[in-house]
């Protein structure tokens, strides 16, 4: 794959976007991530589900970062495409009590970085702070989001989204909204 340099390896760090092409890509990726965030905050479940590619993986690790092997260690969420669909169907029943009433959410996304760009998938990272208002009380969640985005039929789709909660090694309140 062309352009597989990553920001994580300093020796071959991707240059900060300088060409018009870089800037357009950065803009497109950022707008995609903001849109995904808004759909989650607004509980637009179907529109959010439509952002996923068929081979999707939605992963929220526990007890560490994405170096953990999710096939052997417990994760908070480790959904393939069909399990994402199940999650959405459950939310649509109106009897997913952990989201009845739904959490009132508003999240801020920042620190968007395109880490791998080329002819194939685009890898991007972002940080987010999610404010959740819930009958139990208000919760502030923090996360790093790692995306693998793919062009399908002219649009971007999520092939993989990893959500790294910095406190995922501690006891967490229920998190039944889309993160």
């Amino acid at each position: 794959m062309a352009g597989t340099a990553t920001l994580d390896s300093p020796a071959e760090a991707v240059p900060i976007a300088t060409t018009l092409e870089d800037l357009l890509l950065y803009h497109e990726i950022s707008q995609f991530i903001y849109r995904e965030a808004r759909l989650q905050d607004d509980h637009q479940y179907d529109a959010w589900e439509a952002l996923w590619a068929d081979d999707a993986l939605y992963w929220v690790p526990a007890n560490g970062d994405d170096s953990i092997d999710p096939d052997h260690e417990m994760s908070i969420i480790y959904d393939n495409r069909s399990r994402i669909a199940l999650r959405i169907r459950q939310l649509h029943t109106g009897r997913r009590w952990a989201q009845e009433p739904r959490s009132n959410l508003r999240r801020t996304i920042s620190n968007v970085e395109v880490t791998i760009a080329g002819n194939g998938d685009v890898h991007a990272n972002a940080n987010g702070i999610i404010y959740e208002s819930h009958p139990r009380g208000d919760v502030v969640w923090a996360a790093q989001f790692k995306y693998v985005l793919r062009r399908i039929d002219g649009g971007l789709r999520m092939a993989r989204k990893t959500v790294l909660l910095p406190n995922n090694d501690t006891a967490l309140w229920s998190m039944a909204f889309l993160v």
């Binding site: 417990m74 459950q90 967490l172 229920s174």
Partner: peptide
């Protein structure tokens, strides 16, 4: 392997079952 997969889906803060139990306790 299947025990892990089924557990991951059903329990914990985002689990299909336990998040709803949690709402009952609370």
């Amino acid at each position: 392997r299947r025990l892990r997969q089924q557990t991951m889906g059903s329990v914990g803060p985002a689990g299909f079952l336990l998040a709803d139990d949690a709402s009952m306790y609370e």
